[in-house]
C-alpha cells in the first residue's frame, strides 16, 4: 500500500465506493427506498442525488419485488443496477426476483443473459428490532448457485468489496451491517483504486492456538474475544471470511493446519448454517489436522425476541466465543 492511509467510517467507505463506480461507468445506477432525496435511510447514499441526478439515483415506492425485478430487467439489457434494500429483512419480499430471475437467468438462457446486478443494504440483527426486522439472510441466499455473497466487516473491506461487486458480471449480494455503519477504520487514500476480490478471506489477527472463523458482525466479536483470550494465554487467530460465496477454503485450511482447533462464529442461525458447511469442508479435507471437535457460535434457533435480555441470549457474543474457544482448547 502506498500513500497515507486515512480513517473513515464504514458508511463513508460505502459512499465512496458508490460514488467512484457511478463516476466510472455510466451504466451504473442506484435504486431503492429513500436513497435519493432522503440520502438513504442510513445515509449511505449521502450526496449522490446532488452529484448524479435523479436518473441515476432513483427513489422507489415500497415495492421491493417490483424494483428488484426492474433491476434485473435493466441488467438484462446491459445496465449495471445497484439495488438497495433498506434492510435485507425486506429483501424477503423480493425473494423471487433475486432468486428466480437474477440468479437463474444465465443458466436458463443457455448463457445468453448474465445479470450484472448488485443487491446491497444492511443485513443481520440490529438492536431490538424484533422478529420481522432482524433477519440474517446469508444462509438463505447461500443456498442458490449463481449468486455471490460478501459480508464486509471493516470500512476497507466495505469499499473494496462493494466496488468489486458492482464490476462483477453476476448478481452479487453485498450484506452490510447496520451496527457497523458508524465504525471506523483505516483505508487507502481516496485517489487510490481499492478493489478486494470476492472469495478472499483475510486474517484479521494472527494466532497459534485456535482459529476463530468469522464474518460481518462476528468479526468485531471475534477480535474482542481474541483480546480477552490473550490474558488467558490463548493465542487466537481471527479469520474473516469476507465472502460467504465463493468461500475461501484455502485460507480456512491453511489456518486450521496451523492451529488445529476451530471455532466458527456466525451471525446467522445454526440450522443448515454457514458453520455447518465449513465444518464439513474442514473435516473432509484435513480431518487429521484437528485436535478437537469444531465448535460453533451462532444465533439460537428461534425467531428474534424483542426483549433485550432475550435478544442477547439469542445472539453470538464475544463471551460466547471465549467460552467456545476455551472448550475447544481444553478438549
Amino acid at each position: 500500500m502506498s500513500g497515507d492511509m486515512r480513517e473513515v467510517t464504514y458508511r463513508q467507505a460505502l459512499n465512496e465506493a458508490l460514488a467512484e463506480e457511478l463516476e466510472r461507468d455510466a451504466n451504473v445506477f442506484l435504486m431503492g427506498e429513500e436513497v435519493a432525496q432522503y440520502n438513504g435511510a442510513y445515509k449511505v447514499s449521502q450526496g449522490l442525488l446532488d452529484r448524479f441526478g435523479p436518473m441515476r439515483i432513483i427513489d422507489t415506492p415500497i415495492s421491493e419485488n417490483g424494483f428488484a425485478g426492474m433491476g434485473v430487467g435493466a441488467a438484462m439489457v446491459g445496465l449495471r443496477p445497484i439495488v438497495e434494500f433498506m434492510t435485507f429483512s425486506f429483501s424477503l419480499v423480493a425473494f423471487d426476483q433475486v432468486v428466480n430471475n437474477a440468479t437463474n437467468m444465465l443458466t436458463m438462457s443457455g448463457g445468453q443473459f448474465n445479470i450484472p446486478i448488485t443487491f446491497r443494504g444492511p443485513n443481520g440483527p440490529a438492536h431490538q428490532l424484533g422478529a420481522t426486522h432482524s433477519h440474517a439472510t446469508e444462509c438463505l441466499y447461500a443456498n442458490f448457485p449463481g449468486l455471490k455473497i460478501c459480508t464486509p466487516a471493516t470500512p476497507r473491506d466495505a469499499k473494496g468489496l462493494l466496488k468489486t461487486a458492482i464490476r462483477d458480471n453476476n448478481p452479487v449480494l453485498v450484506l452490510e451491517s447496520e451496527l457497523l455503519y458508524s465504525s471506523k477504520g483505516m483505508i487507502e487514500p481516496a485517489d487510490q483504486e481499492l478493489l478486494i476480490p470476492l472469495g478472499e478471506a483475510e486474517l484479521k489477527r494472527e494466532g497459534s492456538d485456535v482459529t476463530i472463523i468469522c464474518y460481518a458482525q462476528t468479526v468485531p466479536l471475534a477480535l474482542a474475544a481474541a483480546e480477552a483470550l490473550e490474558e488467558e494465554e490463548i493465542s487466537a487467530e481471527v479469520l474473516d471470511l469476507r465472502s460467504i460465496k465463493p468461500l475461501d477454503l484455502h485460507a480456512i485450511l491453511n489456518s486450521v493446519a496451523k492451529t488445529h482447533r476451530v471455532v466458527v462464529a456466525e451471525q446467522d442461525r445454526p440450522y443448515c448454517g454457514i458453520g455447518s458447511e465449513i465444518c464439513y469442508r474442514i473435516q473432509k479435507e484435513i480431518f487429521d489436522e484437528l485436535d478437537a471437535p469444531i465448535a460453533r457460535v451462532s444465533q439460537e434457533d428461534v425467531p428474534m425476541p424483542y426483549n433485550e435480555r432475550l435478544e442477547k441470549a439469542v445472539l453470538p457474543s464475544a463471551e460466547k466465543i471465549v467460552a467456545a474457544v476455551k472448550k475447544v482448547c481444553d478438549a
Binding site: 415500497i62 429483512s89 425486506f90 424477503l92 419480499v93 431490538q128 428490532l129 424484533g130 422478529a131 420481522t132 426486522h133 425476541p305 424483542y306 426483549n307 432475550l310
Partner: peptide, 24 residues
C-alpha cells in the same frame, strides 16, 4: 415482551397485530 412496539397483539380483544413488513 417478545414483539415490541411494532408487534402488538391482543387476541382476546380481536387485535390481530401489529405488523412491521409494509403491506404484508
Amino acid at each position: 415482551g417478545l414483539g415490541g412496539s411494532m408487534h402488538y397483539f391482543d387476541k382476546a380483544r380481536h387485535m390481530y397485530g401489529g405488523h412491521a413488513i409494509v403491506g404484508a
